[in-house]
Design a protein around this nucleic acid. Structure first.
Lengths: 188, 188
DNA sequence: GTCTATACCGAGATAGAC
DNA sequence: GTCTATCTCGGTATAGAC
């Protein structure tokens, strides 16, 4: 596989990811994506047999992002610090979350309805980060209820993102992050 | 306005609402909707000038549902009972929520991206129920932080719905509802 | 291997018969 | 007022030139 190919493929996937986040995956036509990526329209099919396949590549790209994020978090020494750092990152992205919703939640919900292979794959966008959160709680001494705690933290994250998006109000995130941190302190 | 007209219009709106919930509003074509409602396809434009107008009618129909729900809740004597009844209703609908997501959250998020009049109107799907929740907290003695509490309760609702949908797991709702009830007890 | 031209289909929307 | 037939456009996907 030559360099030019990978470059174009990468550009297509990342552009598709960007447009899917801004406008939705279904609303973004292959022409839109190709143009924005500076790739000839028909040429898309050299890299992806169908649009669905491009969708899977977008999910894979998001999963890579998540793994990179986890790797960064894991450099912190304690699980407690890692969980707080995660919540801090939510607040740091409050503007983006309020303007366009959660990139994971939005994509997951949209692809879920699409059905087929995409629906199944989209669930990984949740399992991947939630698994990591659960590990942190376990490492912090919560062997028995790690899953429950992880579910709660992740739900809180998705909830504040969805509502902040609905109202286009980043301040809601600040409010909820405050509560969420208080909650973490009570369990850790 | 004759009886036949209202009947067909009502049928169209309710069918559109059902399909929008199951498959998404954009993915549901006017032909799909008209067929499912047993109305000739071209005839849709007698009732709605554009598809967007039909979308607004769908939102209005959801708002009516919400108001009917509020009226029912308001028959209970105390705000505390009303809030618990609200949370109970979430749990009662856990199967539907896990299978198709939250009807309000899903519609709100989808129409939000659509832009235009629909984006603005879709926000009412959140303001309407959140306003009611806030009233309950205020009536229960929380004058100062009623909004914050309402935001938290509503975020928790949307969060558990989004995550339960992502995993297609109604049990997540049971877990979170339990926590949510505990939380209400601590503030009321 | 890369890209142009185009086929094909289904969408929203309209004209006009009845 | 109600419905049929159709128009137009934009989407995915493909055929084939270079």
């Amino acid at each position: 596989m030559g360099k030019t190919q990978t470059d174009k493929r990468t550009r297509l996937v990342e552009t598709a990811m960007k447009l899917a986040y801004r406008d939705g995956f279904r609303e973004s036509s292959l022409a839109d994506i190709a143009n924005a990526a500076h790739v000839p329209v028909g040429n898309v099919y050299y890299y992806f047999k169908t649009k669905e396949e491009l969708g899977e590549a977008v999910v894979d790209r998001r999963l890579e992002e998540i793994r990179a994020f986890k790797a960064e978090m894991d450099r912190l020494s304690s699980p407690r610090e890692r969980l707080f750092a995660f919540v801090d990152s939510i607040q740091r992205n409050k503007e983006e979350l309020a303007r366009g919703g959660c990139p994971l939640g939005g994509l997951c919900a949209e692809l879920h309805k699409e059905g087929g292979a995409l629906a199944k794959k989209s669930a990984e966008l949740f399992t991947e980060p939630m698994g990591w959160i659960e590990e942190q709680f376990r490492a912090a001494g919560h062997q028995k209820d790690s899953r429950e705690l992880a579910v709660h933290l992740f739900c809180a994250f998705q909830g504040m993102a969805a509502v902040a998006y609905g109202f286009n109000d980043p301040d809601l995130i600040v409010m909820e992050v405050k509560r969420l941190k208080d909650w973490i302190r009570t369990v850790l």
